[in-house]
């Protein structure tokens, strides 16, 4: 005769041995992601909301002129940076910045320009701690074009802004809570390489194993509370 409680216990025990550590990772990472609000993770508190100030069109070069200078433009935008009117032009080969008064293409933003822009955007208290023009894109902003200015600020959880030298725009904001989220997310979806493939084979196997483990646990529950009832019956 098959002793079902023993089968359930054995199945639950052995499955747990295999999946137990990952189950713990799932719960811990899940708890972190729920407990720290996603707006904080995104670093919304690190930057000021830009005030939309009207642009004076007087003395500005027209879009038609910029289009002629920058051949094959895919789009073009008139904006203001540090109080100066600029055109941001998208082309197949990338994006670039034009002076809207002279119509000339501007060189890559230098350290002073990147620092000024970062300080204007940053909403925290501390000042700039370190700046570097990176030619290799770090993992925390994977997929962005190089080179890029990394501006690290003083303050809690190492706040960092990334400024594109091509356009002077803010590309990303990072801090240690984001970095921790990214790290636990890697464990949650078990993609240890690119951290973005939620359909990887390892995850599929592990999650279904977890389903079976949970089910055998539920099965075990059926036997786990029986003894007391019997004792009570016997006492009665």
């Amino acid at each position: 005769m098959v002793r079902w409680p023993s089968v359930a216990r054995k199945a639950h025990k052995w499955l747990s041995l295999i999946i137990g550590v990952q189950a713990l990772f799932w719960v811990v990472s899940g708890l972190y992601m729920t407990a720290v609000h996603i707006d904080i993770i995104h670093g919304d508190h690190l930057v000021r909301t830009p005030v939309a100030e009207p642009i004076s069109m007087v003395g500005l070069v027209d879009p038609a002129v910029i289009l002629k200078t920058a051949g094959g433009a895919q789009s073009l935008r008139l904006d203001q940076q540090l109080g100066q009117p600029v055109y941001i032009v998208s082309q197949k080969e990338g994006r670039s910045l034009f002076d809207a008064r002279s119509g000339e293409k501007l060189p890559l933003i230098d350290e002073a320009g990147a620092r000024q822009r970062a300080e204007q955007i940053y909403a925290g208290d501390g000042g700039v701690r370190e700046m570097e023009l990176l030619y290799e894109i770090p993992g925390e902003i994977r997929g962005r074009p190089a080179p890029i200015w990394r501006v690290q600020f003083e303050g809690l959880w190492r706040p960092t802004l990334y400024i594109a030298p091509q356009t002077g725009e803010l590309v990303a904001k990072r801090h240690d809570l984001w970095r921790t989220f990214d790290f636990v997310w890697m464990f949650h979806i078990m993609d240890y390489e690119t951290r973005d493939n939620v359909n990887n084979l390892l995850l599929k196997i592990a999650t279904w194993m977890m389903v079976v483990t949970s089910l055998t646990g539920a099965w075990l529950l059926l036997y786990s509370f029986r003894r007391k009832r019997r004792v009570r019956k016997a006492a009665a």
Partner: peptide, 24 residues
Amino acid sequence: FGLVLGLQFLLWSISGAAMALIDH
């Protein structure tokens, strides 16, 4: 804890496993 929270734990397992199967 298994008795009280087990159902949600099971639901997390099943929904997680299902999402892993659906092409993102």
